[in-house]
Simulated scan of single mutants.
Amino acid sequence: MSSLLERLAEVRKSGEVGRLAEAIPYARWMRIAPENGTGELLTRMRFHDDLIGNTFLPAIHGGTLGAMLEMTAIFHLLWETETETVPKIVNITVDYLRSARPADVIAAAKVTKQGRRMVNVFAEAWQDDRSKPVATANAHFLVTSSDDAPPSL
Rank of each mutant, 00 (worst) to 15 (best):
L4V: 13
I106V: 14
R28D: 00
D147A: 15
A135G: 02
G62F: 04
T81H: 05
P58K: 11
P87N: 06
M30D: 01
A109T: 02
F141E: 02
V119M: 10
T85C: 15
N91V: 00
L78T: 05
Q127I: 08
R117E: 13
R116Q: 10
E124T: 12
A23E: 02
F47K: 02
G53V: 05
V86L: 10
A9Q: 09
D147I: 14
R117V: 08
A27T: 00
L57H: 13
V11A: 02
E80M: 13
I24H: 01
A137S: 11
M45P: 02
A149E: 15
F56L: 13
G39A: 00
F141A: 02
P34N: 04
H61K: 05
H140T: 15
A9C: 03
N54T: 12
T144M: 15
S2T: 14
L41T: 00
E22A: 09
A59V: 12
W79S: 01
I32R: 02
Q127Y: 11
L77C: 06
P151S: 12
R101S: 15
P34Q: 01
L5Q: 03
E124H: 10
M71I: 11
L57E: 11
K88I: 15
P25Q: 03
M118E: 10
V11L: 00
N54K: 06
L57D: 12
G66C: 03
T136S: 06
N138A: 11
S145L: 09
R101L: 14
D49R: 13
H76D: 04
Q127P: 05
R46T: 11
T93P: 04
L69G: 05
I52Y: 03
P25W: 03
V11W: 02
R117C: 07
L8W: 00
E6V: 08
D104C: 09
G66L: 09
L69A: 02
A21N: 00
V134T: 11
F141Y: 12
N54Y: 07
S152D: 08
L65A: 05
Q114A: 13
E40C: 00
R117Q: 15
H140V: 15
V17C: 04
D50W: 06
D147S: 15
K88V: 15
I60F: 08
A139Q: 09
G66S: 13
A27F: 03
Y96F: 14
A137W: 01
I32A: 05
Q114D: 04
